[in-house]
Design a protein around this nucleic acid. Structure first.
Length: 292
DNA sequence: CTCCAGGTCGTTG
DNA sequence: CAACGACATGGA
């Protein structure tokens, strides 16, 4: 891959294992907007990035090489060799071949911890389109304006200091429903952890246990946060879609979620998170049979 | 109008 | 411990 800066844009040429539509639309993030064919605005790290892709060329508009190197390279996980991961997974797990082939351009975004945590608390029992609306509403109400692209304004997700002052009632007014107290509890914990730095350097198990002390964070949300917001690539969130496709690919019968997670840990190991994303996206897209 | 959505909590058996 | 209903809200 080559990285060039030209006329205030950054261009990535000969990009491998990268499909902007699959990356953003695969349910790992909620703070983006499709503005054209293979053209998006994604909001993260208090910035709005206008990005488009044509074949193996990716355009990052109105940015610089410095910003790419300090922010977007890590956000898009460009230092990870997805070709290698896919080969490993396909070798050991023949069942994944179709999903990987179909969703070959997925990457696991390295998102901010706080936004990921709150977004996935909101996600419970909600459709992705509605999760996006709530994340946008929170950002518009409490975040900063970080860009105007094609006449549309984009707002960053509020930082921790601002989040600390949002009341349960204010969250209810933003249509978060019964999740409002969960969000407040999560913010309280975020504040503690940022003050004593206690979320850093933990093992997967320790971090998961810590996350699950938050009311409203169960096994699935904790795994999503570990994977998308804290970089634990072995995390394997089991939701309805993963349950359906793994029952079809592996178990051939109704199987409890904890059994599925246990199996994934043994079978996929450190690559669990990647395997999960290929399967999730594939299952949701191809509408895997609802029953077995 | 009914059903369900990238679930979790509290309560029962 | 496994099973089950409640929980807010909006879209199909």
């Amino acid at each position: 891959m080559r990285v060039e800066e030209k006329d205030g844009n950054v261009i990535l040429k000969n990009v491998c294992d990268f499909n902007i539509e699959q990356i953003l639309e695969c349910g790992q993030c909620f703070h983006f907007k499709k503005i054209g064919e293979m053209e998006y605005v994604t909001v993260a790290f208090e910035r709005a990035l206008h990005v488009s892709q044509y074949e193996d060329t990716v355009f990052l508009y109105n940015t610089s090489l410095d910003e790419y190197n300090s922010i977007w390279k890590n956000y898009f996980d460009m230092d990870t060799d997805y070709g290698l991961i896919k080969e490993r997974l396909k070798c050991t797990c023949d069942e994944l071949k179709d999903a990987i082939q179909e969703k070959s351009g997925i990457r696991i975004l390295r998102q901010e911890f706080a936004e990921t945590l709150l977004s996935f608390i909101i996600s419970q029992n909600k459709q992705i389109s509605h999760i996006k609306k709530i994340v946008e509403a929170i950002s518009k109400e409490y975040g900063k304006i970080v860009g105007v692209i094609n006449g549309e304004e984009y707002y960053s997700f509020p930082n921790l200091e601002v989040l600390c002052n949002i009341t349960e009632e204010e969250f209810r007014n933003l249509k978060t429903g019964f999740r409002a107290p969960y969000l407040c509890d999560a913010i309280k914990h975020l504040k503690e952890w940022s003050e004593d730095n206690s979320i850093e350097g933990l093992s997967y198990e320790e971090a998961k246990e810590k996350l699950m002390t938050i009311k409203g964070v169960g096994d699935k949300v904790a795994n999503c946060v570990l994977l998308f917001g804290l970089g634990y690539t072995s995390a394997f969130p089991v939701d309805v879609w993963i349950k359906r496709i793994m029952e079809q690919l592996y178990f051939k019968k109704d199987t409890p979620k904890n059994k599925i997670e246990e199996f994934a840990k043994k079978h996929f190991g450190e690559y669990g998170g990647y395997a999960q994303q290929y399967m999730f996206c594939f299952a949701r897209d191809s509408k895997v049979d609802m029953v077995l």
